[in-house]
């Protein structure tokens, strides 16, 4: 088992009722797996609606997560 932290921003943080959650995952779990298991129902959008990062670097939904990783769920950006 691995412990990971997930950061949420913008409306994703509102829907998840918090900016940060911790999850315990099975070995081999990908970002996409975690999203579908823990977030899709609350965020009400498919995985393709978001970008992701792991340890502050862009990551594909197919990336496998490891103990201690910090994942971010990144809605469409709107800076400027």
């Amino acid at each position: 088992m691995a412990e990971i932290t997930v950061l949420f921003f913008s409306y994703a943080a509102d829907r998840m009722n918090g900016r940060q959650h911790r999850y315990t995952i099975e070995p081999g779990t990908t970002i996409g797996d975690l999203y579908r298991q823990e977030m899709e129902e609350r965020l009400q959008q498919p995985v393709a609606a978001f970008m992701f990062s792991v340890n502050a670097e862009w990551a594909a939904p197919s990336q496998i997560l490891h103990d201690g990783d910090e994942v971010a769920v990144i809605p469409p950006v709107s800076g400027g």
Binding site: S10, P75, V77, S78, G79
Partner: peptide, 18 residues
Amino acid sequence: PIWKKERWADGKTAWHDD
């Protein structure tokens, strides 16, 4: 990765692209 929330004159708020 920066996001903006509109603060409407009527007191409501909304994230852009929500």
